[in-house]
Simulated scan of single mutants.
Amino acid sequence: MEKHLIVTQDSDKSSDEVCSWFYRHGVHFKRLNLDSYKMIDRNNDLYFDYFNFDSVDISIPGKTEVNDENLAKKYTSIWYRRPRANFDNMVIDQTESDLSKILFDKIKSNQKSELRELYEYIFNSSLHGSVVLGNRLKTRVNKLEILSLANRLGICIPRTKVVTKKSQILEFQKEVNNSLITKSIFEPIFAIDNDLEQRHISYTNELTDSILEKIPNYFSPSLLQEKVEKDFEIRTFVMGENFYSMAIFSQNNKKTAVDFRKYDREKPNRNIPFTLPEELKAKIKKLLKAIDFNTGSIDIIKGTDGKYYFLEINSVGQFGMVSKPCNYNIEYHIYKYLTRNEEKTS
């Protein structure tokens, strides 16, 4: 019987590596992929099970019954690695329907929303674990709210504004007496153009004079921050009380100086293990507790002024980029966190 549950996606390689430790030590576990709403052959390896809504019976008030072994018992541990369900592949039978495309698309969108509401209720009422890593329903936080909260907790952040006019940009420049950078208020854009075989990714960029000249007088609300002069960048993966930090010397390369995600494959950044100051770790723990996270990847800048500037947190961000260069073996430590040194069962 499986005692450990990993809620993730089929395509997540970090989950694959953690699962390999369960296999290596012979500890039973269940992996629940939420890539799409679809049926999977039950005779297949349970490792590849997907979530589905078959035979759901709910009475309110009353009992919730789900005829799905994934949700049928209390687990020793649950890791909500990537717990966001995807209902995009749900199909509405339109074979005998005269619905217009507009109405059909609206109904499909509404049904996806209804499935999402049901999914959240089922997960809240059915899944329980003695050890829980991650948040079952919350995978992100508002970028503006987290900056505000960090500031209230005494964590240094870059001076930040959201503006809609070019004149506000110029005023902000004078206020900080420094260069400005701009980044997405929400998530970065990532798009693939298969026809042209191109990838389009939005990065953090400096507002240079040449860019400012092209900006119109009025535009959509945009996030600006004071450009912090970097000593180096830090990516920290937090798991419970444990911090795994990596210093990224991105400022030594013009290509990566503003955003280290503009990877230079020919001249990679130097990455080394790093230890955050205890005072900063204590404040980050308070921040995580306030947003109900016990794990996540955090981006920080160590400024040339000696200060540590908090940028953002991603609860489901990749941690392999920290684990491997620093030889932390985070995947193994996640396994140990979930199993609590459990003895081999087979």
Rank of each mutant, 00 (worst) to 15 (best):
K281L: 08
E213N: 13
P221N: 03
E279V: 12
T76N: 15
C19L: 12
V91S: 13
D193R: 06
S59F: 07
S77L: 04
K108Q: 10
I330T: 04
K174E: 14
H28D: 11
H333E: 15
D35P: 02
K165I: 03
Q173S: 11
S97Y: 04
F123S: 07
C326N: 11
D259E: 09
T160R: 06
S210Q: 14
I211Y: 12
V27E: 07
I181L: 10
F190I: 14
L153W: 05
C326I: 05
F29M: 10
I272Q: 10
Y119Q: 04
N271H: 07
L5P: 02
V238D: 01
S15N: 03
I201Y: 14
T160Q: 05
D193H: 04
V141E: 15
I155M: 10
D299A: 01
T304P: 02
H4K: 01
V322K: 01
I155E: 03
I334Q: 02
N67S: 13
K166V: 03
F123P: 00
Y50T: 09
Y332N: 13
S77Q: 05
L196W: 00
T204E: 00
I107A: 06
G296S: 08
F22A: 00
I40H: 02
L280V: 09
G154P: 09
G296I: 04
A191I: 13
I185F: 02
I272F: 01
T164V: 06
V316G: 00
S125A: 15
C326T: 05
K344Y: 09
D88N: 15
R81D: 06
D35C: 03
G134F: 02
F249Q: 06
Y308S: 05
G320Q: 01
F53V: 00
F53N: 01
Y80Q: 03
D68G: 07
I185N: 04
D98L: 13
I215G: 11
V27N: 08
E331C: 08
D305V: 09
K285A: 10
K227W: 00
Y37C: 12
S202F: 03
E17G: 01
K289N: 14
Y203N: 08
M239Y: 03
I300F: 15
F293V: 00
H28F: 11
I40R: 11
G26Q: 03
G303L: 07
V18L: 04
K63I: 13
E342C: 10
N177K: 14
Q9A: 10
I185S: 07
V91N: 14
C326V: 08
K138F: 03
M239T: 04
R199N: 13
G306V: 08
K38A: 15
V176K: 01
L144M: 14
F104E: 12
L5V: 03
V176C: 07
V91G: 04
S15C: 11
N252I: 06
S113C: 11
Y203L: 07
K344N: 11
N70A: 15
F260D: 01
N177F: 07
F48R: 08
Q198L: 13
T182N: 09
F48Q: 05
R152S: 15
Y309L: 02
L137H: 12
P325W: 09
I107C: 05
F232Q: 02
S100H: 12
